[in-house]
C-alpha cells in the first residue's frame, strides 16, 4: 500500500518536474527569456534536488519491482519480501546520493 501510494505520488511529481524543466529550458535557450532562469534556480537548490532524487530513485526501483513481478507472476508469493528487498537497495543508494551532495555543498 505504501509502495503503491508513493509510486503514484512520485510519478505525478516527475511529470510536473519534467514538463516544467522542459518549458524552462525552452524559454531560457530558445526564447532568451528570464522566466526559464527563475524556474531553473529552484531546481538547482539543494532541497529540491534531495526531493527529486528520492522521487526518481524510488519510482525507478519500484517500477523495476513491478516489471519483474508482472513478468514472473509466480514470484507474487514473495511480494512482501520484494518490498523489503526494494527498501534494502533504496536506502543505501539514496543515502549515498544525499551524502555526496551535502559533502559537495560543504566543500563549496
Amino acid at each position: 500500500m505504501l509502495a503503491w501510494v508513493l509510486h503514484r505520488i512520485s510519478g505525478l511529481a516527475i511529470v510536473i518536474f519534467v514538463s516544467m524543466h522542459m518549458l524552462a529550458s525552452f524559454f531560457q535557450h530558445q526564447m532568451g527569456s528570464n522566466l526559464g532562469t527563475s524556474i531553473n534556480i529552484i531546481y538547482e537548490s539543494m532541497y529540491f534536488q534531495i526531493f527529486i532524487y528520492f522521487v526518481v530513485i524510488f519510482h525507478a526501483l519500484n517500477g523495476l519491482r513491478i516489471i519483474i513481478l508482472d513478468t514472473w507472476p509466480q514470484l507474487l508469493e514473495y511480494q512482501r519480501e520484494s518490498i523489503w528487498l526494494e527498501w534494502l537497495i533504496f536506502i543505501p543508494l539514496y543515502a549515498l546520493a544525499v551524502y555526496m551532495m551535502i559533502q559537495q555543498l560543504l566543500k563549496g
Binding site: 514538463s19 522542459m22 518549458l23 529550458s25 525552452f26 535557450h29 530558445q30
Partner: peptide, 17 residues
C-alpha cells in the same frame, strides 16, 4: 494535446541545442 506539445517542444529543444 499536452503529450503532443511535450514531444514536439522536446524534439525542438534537442535538435536546436
Amino acid at each position: 494535446g499536452i503529450w503532443l506539445f511535450m514531444v514536439i517542444v522536446g524534439l525542438y529543444i534537442i535538435l536546436t541545442i
